Computed example of a mutant assay.
Amino acid sequence: MHKQNTGKGFKARLDHMFTDREFFMRSHGQVRFLTISATLQKRVFYSVAAALAFWLVITLAMMINQLTVTGERMALAQKEAEVNSIESRVSSYKASIEDVAADLKQRQDVLDQMTEQFVGEPPAAADQKQNDEQLSENTRKISAAFPEAAHLAKLEARQILFARRLTNAAIQRTEQAAQAIRKFGLNPDKLSNNATNAMGGPLIPFFKEQNQQLHPTLERLNLALQRMDALERTLIAIPSGKPSSTGMISSSYGYRRDPFTGGSAMHSGMDFKGPLGQPILAAAGGRVTHAGWKSGYGKCVEITHGNGLMTRYAHLSKIGVATGQKIEQGVQLGAMGSTGRSTGTHLHFEVRLNGRAINPRPFLEANSDVLKIKAIARQRAKTPGRSESGTSRG
C-alpha cells in the first residue's frame, strides 16, 4: 500500500512538473502561439534520462574493464617477477650444486686413494660399468630432468663402488679372523654369538621417517663390518701369550697319575716349572674376576676375556692385581710359587670356555700367521675414538 502511494505521489509530481505550456511570439505585428504539451515534455525527459543512464552504464563498464585489465597486467607482471626470481634461484642452485659436486668429488678422490693404498687395487673398468648400470632410478630421473645433477649421479656410482670394495675387504678380514680362531681349536660362530647375544638399549631410529632405510649396498657393508668386528674382537680375546717365560712343562693337559694319591685323575691345565718368584703374565687382556685364595689352587688369579673365555693362574707365591682390575696382555699378575695343592714351585695354567676346561696347548703354540692377524685386529681395536668393552682387548 505504501509503495502504491509512493508511486502515485511520484506520478503526481511529474504531472505537476510537465504541464502544457504555451509560448507566443510577435513578428511584424503578428502574434503566434506555440504550445508544448505535457506528453511531449515527458517523452523528451525520458529520452534524455535513458540516454544519460545508458552513458553511465557504458562508462561504468569501461571503468570496470579498465580496472580488470590493470589487475591482470599487475598479476602478469608479478608472475614475470616470480619467474625471473625462480630462474635466478635455479641458476644459483646450479652453481651451488656444481660447487658441492666438485667438493664431494675431491673428497671421494682422497677416499679412493686411501682405499687403494690400504685395501687393494683400484676398481676395474668392468666393475665401474656395472656400477654405473646399477644407479638408482631416482638418480636417473634427476639426471634426465636436471642435467647439472649428473655430477652427483657419478659421485653416487663411485660411492657405491667404494662401499663394495670396503665390503669385500671386511669379508676378507672376517675370513682371516675366522681361520685364525679355528687354528685355536675353537668355533668362530659360537664364540661370536656369545659376544652378540647380550644387547639392549633404547630404540633411537636412525632415520626420522619410518619408511626410510639404508641403501642396500650400505646395509651389506654395515653387516660385513659388524661381522668383522665381532670376529676380530673374539680373536683378540683368545689367550695367545705365554703366561711365563719358562719353557719347562712339567705336566700336560689330560689324564695323568695324581701326584698325591697315585690314582688316575684329570689334569685341567698345564704346569710350568720354574724358580720361586718367576713373573706370571696375562695370556690375554681382560678383567680380573678373582684374585685370592682358591681351594686346591692356592693363591690364584682368574681373568675373564669375554665370549665365554677365562684363564686361571694358580699356586702363586704372591698376587699383584686386584679383582675388577682391567688388564692387557703381558701384564704381570703375580709370582710363581707352590701354594695350595702343590708338590713344588710351578704355575698351573688353565683355559676355560663357558666354564669347561679345554686344552691350553693350541693357545700357547699359535703360529706367527695367526699372531699377525691378531695383532692387526688388536691395532684396529685400539684406534682412537673406538669404544672398547672391558673384555675385548688382549
Results as ranks from 00 to 15, higher is better:
residue 169 A to P: 00
residue 144 A to Y: 10
residue 146 F to N: 11
residue 143 S to P: 00
residue 149 A to L: 13
residue 144 A to H: 12
residue 152 L to Y: 05
residue 156 E to Y: 03
residue 167 T to W: 01
residue 145 A to R: 09
residue 146 F to K: 08
residue 169 A to I: 01
residue 166 L to M: 12
residue 152 L to E: 04
residue 157 A to R: 03
residue 161 L to H: 02
residue 156 E to M: 04
residue 153 A to L: 06
residue 145 A to F: 15
residue 173 R to S: 09
residue 163 A to G: 05
residue 154 K to G: 05
residue 160 I to N: 10
residue 161 L to P: 00
residue 151 H to E: 14
residue 165 R to M: 08
residue 154 K to Y: 05
residue 167 T to A: 09
residue 147 P to G: 14
residue 150 A to N: 09
residue 144 A to T: 10
residue 147 P to T: 10
residue 161 L to V: 01
residue 164 R to N: 08
residue 144 A to G: 06
residue 164 R to W: 04
residue 152 L to Q: 07
residue 144 A to S: 13
residue 149 A to Y: 09
residue 160 I to C: 04
residue 146 F to R: 07
residue 155 L to W: 01
residue 148 E to F: 15
residue 151 H to I: 02
residue 171 I to Q: 13
residue 143 S to I: 12
residue 171 I to R: 12
residue 148 E to L: 12
residue 145 A to T: 11
residue 147 P to H: 13
residue 161 L to S: 02
residue 144 A to C: 02
residue 171 I to P: 01
residue 170 A to N: 02
residue 160 I to F: 11
residue 167 T to M: 07
residue 156 E to K: 06
residue 144 A to N: 13
residue 166 L to P: 02
residue 153 A to F: 03
residue 166 L to Y: 04
residue 161 L to N: 05
residue 148 E to M: 14
residue 159 Q to M: 08
residue 172 Q to N: 13
residue 157 A to M: 05
residue 159 Q to S: 10
residue 143 S to M: 13
residue 151 H to A: 14
residue 159 Q to I: 05
residue 162 F to K: 05
residue 164 R to D: 06
residue 164 R to P: 00
residue 166 L to G: 01
residue 152 L to T: 03
residue 159 Q to D: 07
residue 161 L to C: 03
residue 154 K to T: 10
residue 154 K to C: 02
residue 167 T to N: 01
residue 145 A to S: 14
residue 159 Q to E: 12
residue 172 Q to L: 12
residue 149 A to H: 10
residue 147 P to S: 13
residue 147 P to E: 08
residue 167 T to E: 05
residue 173 R to P: 00
residue 160 I to E: 06
residue 146 F to W: 14
residue 172 Q to H: 11
residue 147 P to R: 14
residue 151 H to V: 02
residue 172 Q to G: 12
residue 145 A to W: 14
residue 158 R to W: 00
residue 143 S to A: 15
residue 164 R to G: 03
residue 166 L to C: 08
residue 149 A to G: 08
residue 154 K to S: 10
residue 145 A to Y: 14
residue 158 R to V: 02
residue 164 R to Y: 03
residue 151 H to P: 01
residue 152 L to V: 11
residue 172 Q to T: 11
residue 168 N to A: 15
residue 150 A to E: 11
residue 143 S to L: 04
residue 145 A to Q: 12
residue 155 L to C: 00
residue 156 E to C: 02
residue 165 R to T: 00
residue 151 H to F: 10
residue 159 Q to H: 08
residue 170 A to W: 04
residue 160 I to L: 15
residue 160 I to Q: 08
residue 170 A to H: 00
residue 144 A to Q: 15
residue 164 R to C: 02
residue 155 L to E: 06
residue 153 A to M: 09
